[in-house]
C-alpha cells in the first residue's frame, strides 16, 4: 500500500447548473433596478424634473427586471412540470417566494429576499412612474392612467424613496444570490455584491447616456436639462468604471491569495480571451477611455452611444463569466 498525504488532493470542477439564462436574469435585474433607482435619485435628491425620461425609464426598468425573472423560472423544474400539464406546480414558486419564509422561519435564502425585492421594486417603481403620468409622453393621453396617477401624486415622494430603496436591494441581491456557495471561490467572494452593485449602476448610467443622446426632448428646457443630465451621467460612469476596475483588482487579489480553489479560478479567468478581451478590455477599459474623450472633446460626442453600448455589453459579460467560472473545489482526489 502506498501512503499519500491527502492534503495534496483537491478536485476542481466547473458548475453547470446556472448558466446563460441566469446571467441574463442577473444582468437585466441589475440594469432595470439601476434605471429606476437613478431616475428616482435624480428626481428626489438632485431635484431634476424630466417626467417623460424618468417615468418611462422606470417602467422599462420594471419590465427588464421581470423579463429577466422569467429566465430564472425557465431554469426550474416547475416549468418542466408546467409544460407537461401539471399546471398547479407553478403555485410552488408563488409559495416559495412569498410564503415559505413565514411558514419555515428560515429567512436566510437570498433567492427569496431577491424575489421580494423585485416585486416591491416593481410595485413602487410603477406607482412612482404613474404618479408622473399627467406630464409623461404618451401616458398623458390615456385618460384612466392620468386619473390613477393623480390619485398617486400626493404620495409621489414616498413612492420615489421606496423605488430607491428596493432598487438598491435588487442590485445588491444579484451579488448576494451567488454568495451562498462556500466551495465556489468566484461566487462566495465578499466583494461580489459590491462589484455587481457598481456594475449595475454603471449599466444604468449607460442607459441614460443613450436616452439623453438620442432623445433630446421637444422644448428648450427639456433639451437643456437632458444635455446637463447626459453630461453628468457620463462623469458618473467614468467614476463608476474606475471604481469597478478597482473592485475587479481587489476581487482577483483576494482570489489569488485566499486559497487553492481561488488560485485555480484566478488563472483560468485571466487566461480566457473572452473575459480579458471581451469584458475587461471591450466592456470596461475601452468605454472608459471613450467616455473620457467624449466628455472632454465636444466634437466627439458620437463616442457616447458607442461607449454606452460597450458598457451594457460588459455588464452582461461580467455576470456571464462569473457564472461560467463558478468552479467548485471538492476535498477529494479525482
Amino acid at each position: 500500500m502506498i501512503a499519500l498525504d491527502y492534503s495534496q488532493f483537491l478536485t476542481f470542477e466547473p458548475q453547470h447548473h446556472w448558466r446563460v439564462g441566469i446571467a441574463i436574469y442577473l444582468f437585466l435585474g441589475g440594469l432595470g433596478a439601476a434605471m429606476g433607482f437613478l431616475a428616482a435619485m435624480y428626481k428626489h435628491i438632485f431635484k431634476k424634473d424630466d417626467p417623460s425620461m424618468f417615468a418611462w425609464s422606470t417602467l422599462l426598468g420594471v419590465l427588464f427586471v421581470n423579463f429577466g425573472g422569467i429566465f430564472l423560472i425557465l431554469d426550474m423544474f416547475v416549468w418542466e412540470s408546467f409544460i407537461h400539464g401539471h399546471i398547479l406546480q407553478i403555485l410552488k414558486v408563488v409559495y416559495a417566494f412569498f410564503g415559505a419564509a413565514v411558514f419555515n422561519g428560515n429567512f436566510h435564502p437570498w433567492i427569496q429576499w431577491g424575489a421580494n425585492f423585485i416585486v416591491l421594486f416593481s410595485l413602487f417603481g410603477t406607482l412612482w412612474a404613474l404618479s408622473m403620468a399627467d406630464r409623461t409622453a404618451i401616458l398623458k393621453h390615456i385618460g384612466f392612467i392620468v386619473k390613477i396617477g393623480n390619485l398617486l401624486k400626493p404620495l409621489q415622494a414616498l413612492w420615489g424613496w421606496l423605488t430607491i430603496l428596493f432598487g438598491l436591494g435588487v442590485m445588491a441581491y444579484t451579488g448576494f444570490l451567488l454568495s451562498v456557495a462556500p466551495s465556489i471561490p468566484a461566487w462566495s467572494h465578499p466583494l461580489l455584491p459590491v462589484l455587481f452593485l457598481i456594475s449595475a449602476l454603471s449599466t444604468g448610467t449607460a442607459w441614460y447616456m443613450l436616452w439623453t443622446y438620442f432623445a433630446h426632448g421637444k422644448d428648450e428646457q427639456t433639451k437643456e436639462l437632458r444635455e446637463h443630465i447626459g453630461h453628468q451621467v457620463e462623469w458618473v460612469d467614468i467614476a463608476l468604471i474606475g471604481l469597478e476596475l478597482l473592485a475587479i483588482g481587489a476581487y482577483f487579489n483576494y482570489l489569488y491569495y485566499a486559497y487553492a480553489g481561488g488560485k485555480y479560478t484566478f488563472h483560468h479567468m485571466l487566461s480566457d480571451i473572452g473575459f480579458v478581451g471581451g469584458f475587461l478590455f471591450l466592456g470596461l477599459i475601452i468605454p472608459w477611455i471613450l467616455e473620457f474623450i467624449a466628455a472632454k472633446v465636444h466634437s466627439l460626442r458620437i463616442l457616447v452611444p458607442l461607449a454606452a453600448l460597450l458598457v451594457l455589453f460588459g455588464g452582461f459579460l461580467l455576470r456571464y463569466y462569473i457564472l461560467h467560472y463558478g468552479i467548485y473545489t471538492y476535498p477529494w482526489p479525482s
Binding site: 470542477e13 458548475q15 447548473h17 446556472w18 430564472l72 431554469d75 426550474m76 423544474f77 416547475v78 418542466e80 412540470s81 407537461h84 410552488k92 414558486v93 409559495y95 416559495a96 415559505a100 435564502p109 437570498w110 433567492i111 444570490l177 451567488l178 451562498v180 456557495a181 462556500p182 466551495s183 465556489i184 461566487w187 463558478g326 467548485y328 471538492y330 476535498p331
Partner: peptide, 23 residues
C-alpha cells in the same frame, strides 16, 4: 412536493451531494 428546482441548494452544497431528478 415543495422543491421548485431552483438549484440554489445544488450550487450551495460543498460536497457535490445533490442532483436534479428531472421530469
Amino acid at each position: 412536493d415543495l422543491c421548485i428546482g431552483c438549484e440554489a441548494c445544488v450550487t450551495a452544497c460543498p460536497y457535490d451531494a445533490r442532483y436534479r431528478y428531472d421530469y
